[in-house]
Design a protein around this nucleic acid. Structure first.
Lengths: 227, 227
DNA sequence: TGTACATCAGTGAACGCGCGTTCACTGATGTAC
DNA sequence: TGTACATCAGTGAACGCGCGTTCACTGATGTAC
């Protein structure tokens, strides 16, 4: 039973209903199928990885014939790269939300973790996709993700530079810290993904504790040693 | 060109050389093939994941016929569970080495990171296997790894309990901290794996910094808040 | 508005291939006497 | 030590199946006049 069945449904809705009948253009229909392929892929590779997913599984889920796949993507790998793009767009949006909340030492943790929690919920599949394919995807997908994570880390390091004392924090220190924060975020997404829903609040609370510990370390940090 | 070619090589070495000719027993030969299957699998799933690996690829690499696989394992998943067992045996051994070095606040980081570095080198494939299959393996393998990581975290938390002030550290705090340390360790293994060899020293140095930050946080930590 | 032609998302048959698994087998190793 | 039988790791043919990809196609949508 294909879940996304796209090609023929709800065509020609003219006549019967009021004026807002869609009558999709060719471009709109194509975009809708493309979306359905992306969504079906995110759903299907939940249980394993992109490398274990076949083109035929995807098209069966979408409700199109296997050969129609090539109207949208060259290969599963190409499709994977599109999903990397999309997933990081949503991650970046999250970071923008954190930044917009105007973080200070007093509220940075609670506001960050709250935003993270909300986004992990609403962008659940994107987070899970990144967490998984980062280590298990096809080579090109893995390296695209590694590159994107590096960009996010650099962005985050620039944010952190504004909150820390440059006397004690080297650029390298900031990169290490943002690496840990990103790793912790991805780990939280992973944990939420692989647990039952009722455990989510505990995991979010644990993420809060993790960030607190990191930030306490950050407050007391001196690059030169343990002091 | 099969790398592990096992079945027929170097048979009947009696006569020519001195007294230490092996003349393997049936059990020894079987164990040698089993080892070759495990090693070939670790090698082959380097480039992707267990879920993308076929039984035929493995047996071709080992140099046996596909059906001979069943003399050793029921399925790729069963083989995966054996590798989980083995990988965690080597992780546990590492933790034993850290513990044996009698850590104190003064040397805990350098001695831990040194031991980690050595083990990541010598047990490179096991670390990589855990890091990858933890998120991308077949369901049974994933849950076996999650269970083993929980055990390691609990072990580590017990170690940390001896080094921290129980007034400020709850059991839950210790679990969170050891979770972060384990995550950081796995992340370091991952980073070493996916980078070129010349970058390794920088990654190890980064791991040292990460642990220092975590430990600084730990020293100053109070469960009740940022203080 | 009407007609003739171009575009192109999706179709369906066909291909050769590697897959997991079955089965009856071979022949060296191991064991009982 | 010698013989007869049991064990069992590895063999090789065969199977049905899902795979990615090719190709010529269909017919609704879009465009030029």
């Amino acid at each position: 039973m294909p879940s996304g069945a796209v090609p023929g449904d709800a065509r020609h809705s003219s006549g019967t209903s009021s004026g807002d009948s869609p009558v999709e253009s060719r471009g709109e229909r194509k975009e809708r199928t493309r979306r359905a392929i992306l969504d079906a892929t995110l759903t299907l590779c939940h249980e394993s990885s992109l490398v274990a997913l076949s083109l035929r599984q995807v098209t069966k889920e979408v409700g199109i014939v296997p050969t129609a796949f090539y109207r949208h993507f060259d290969s599963i790998e190409d499709l994977g790269l599109a999903l990397v793009e999309e997933s990081f767009a949503s991650l970046r949006e999250m970071l923008r939300d954190v930044r917009r909340s105007g973080p200070t030492y007093e509220n940075i943790i609670d506001s960050s973790v709250q935003v993270l929690g909300e986004h992990v919920h609403s962008q659940h599949d994107h987070f899970a996709f990144i967490a998984r394919e980062r280590v298990a995807g096809p080579p090109a997908v893995r390296s695209a993700i590694r590159h994107q994570i590096e960009l996010v880390e650099r962005e985050l390091a620039a944010d952190l530079a504004r909150l820390t004392d440059p006397t004690y924090w080297t650029t390298e220190d900031l990169r290490v810290l943002s690496n840990m924060i990103v790793t912790s975020m991805v780990g939280t997404a992973e944990a939420i993904l692989s647990s039952r829903p009722e455990a989510e609040e505990a995991i979010v609370e644990q993420a809060r504790t993790q960030l607190r510990m990191l930030l306490v370390g950050a407050l007391r940090w001196r690059s030169t040693g343990l002091g």
